[in-house]
């Protein structure tokens, strides 16, 4: 293993910004994990697939609306449509998950391990349905009509070349405009969400349920609705993450969710699970650490860094960087 410090120090600003961009995406996905965990103490293993479906919704919208030939206002309009499509798709999947894979278990007060197994099962089903979409549409004789969308079911589906990604320089540092868009919009979403959970009635309901479900329901908070809202918000944020991810990396496939999901969960734990601001911090720290680490150690160690960081943080500070709490009360 060679340590390449020279490269690292020469490119520190660029490495940091790219790292922050990845971190912002982790953070948006991490929100889904952290909120569901805060309210249900459940690791929503299938949240990674919520994200994955969002990336395909984005990709297909771009293809359907012909973004390759568009530019200017037209292109912006298509991108906004793609953003909404991704958010809608992810939200629908998240709500479906809650309805089918979790609610029956929550109703029966099943052990958490069982809910996790159900989540793992749902995750397999969702990923495989996407991976087998060519075969499934074939059963209905739709594979010809949908050929652009269902072909290459098992490999990377790319939208490279649709977007120009201009770079600009500030003080000699070359910055990708996409990175800036990703970071700014992700952080803006997080701030909005944080304010929403803090101030709105629904947000208060979520926090109350996270702290004490029984008392919350006695006080008139509808637990089922609150849980639905939690999944919905997590899904919407995963949709935004999917959109930004596609802007940045252009390609997706049916298994893209898994590793990203694990890392996003790592980010959530890193920041302190159940804690919204922790998710943001955890995501950013993870993204930057990963990018720095791979610059020094080589890209093949990228994924190891994430896990080593997680293990270390948990050993030093078991409740994560900012501590656990969705409502601030469970410090």
């Amino acid at each position: 293993m060679n340590l390449n410090f020279e490269f690292f120090f020469n490119n520190l600003p660029e490495l940091t910004i790219t790292g922050l961009a990845f971190g912002a995406i982790y953070a948006l996905i991490a929100l889904g994990y952290t909120m569901v965990y805060g309210v249900l103490q459940l690791i929503n293993f299938a949240h990674s697939e919520v994200f994955m479906y969002g990336t395909f919704a984005m990709l297909w919208t771009i293809m359907a609306l012909g973004a390759a030939d568009a530019n200017g206002v037209h292109l912006v309009a298509i991108l906004i449509a793609a953003l909404f499509a991704a958010m809608a798709m992810s939200a629908v999947i998240a709500l479906g998950l809650e309805r089918i894979a979790y609610r029956p278990l929550i109703k029966r007060n099943a052990p958490r391990l069982i809910a996790l197994i159900s989540a793992i099962g749902a995750s397999f089903v969702l990923a495989e349905l996407m991976g087998l979409r060519d075969k499934i549409s074939g059963w209905f004789g739709l594979d010809d009509d949908l050929s652009d969308y269902v072909q290459k079911a098992k490999i990377n589906n790319s939208m490279a070349g649709v977007l120009e990604k201009p770079r600009f320089e500030i003080a000699g540092v070359s910055i990708s405009s996409i990175d800036v868009i990703v970071i700014v919009s992700a952080v803006a979403m997080m701030v909005l969400l944080d304010q929403f959970v803090r101030r709105s009635r629904l947000g208060k309901g979520i926090r109350a349920t996270a702290q004490d479900p029984e008392t919350a329901s006695l006080m008139g908070v509808n637990p089922t609705r609150t849980i639905q809202m939690t999944f919905l918000i997590g899904g919407l944020m995963a949709g935004v993450a999917a959109f930004l991810y596609m802007l940045k990396l252009d390609a997706t496939n049916y298994q893209v969710g898994f590793l990203l999901g694990v890392k996003a969960f790592t980010a959530a734990v890193l920041g302190g699970i159940g804690n919204l601001r922790g998710a943001l911090l955890g995501g950013l720290v993870l993204g930057v650490a990963e990018n720095w680490g791979q610059a020094i150690l080589g890209s093949e160690w990228r994924d190891v860094i994430a896990f080593v960081l997680l293990v270390l943080i948990l050993l030093v500070r078991p409740t994560g960087l900012l501590g656990e709490s969705l409502g601030k009360a469970r410090a």
């Binding site: 103490q41 694990v262 969960f265 093949e300 994924d303 190891v304 994430a306 896990f307 948990l314 078991p318």
Partner: peptide, 26 residues
């Protein structure tokens, strides 16, 4: 890790399994 809470154990062990594999790869 057995001192930390149960759910974290799940994630730490998950990370451990991946680290072992990635170290072998690299």
């Amino acid at each position: 890790t057995l001192r930390v809470r149960g759910d974290y154990l799940a994630i730490v062990t998950l990370g451990f399994g991946e680290i072992i594999r990635l170290v072998a790869v690299n």
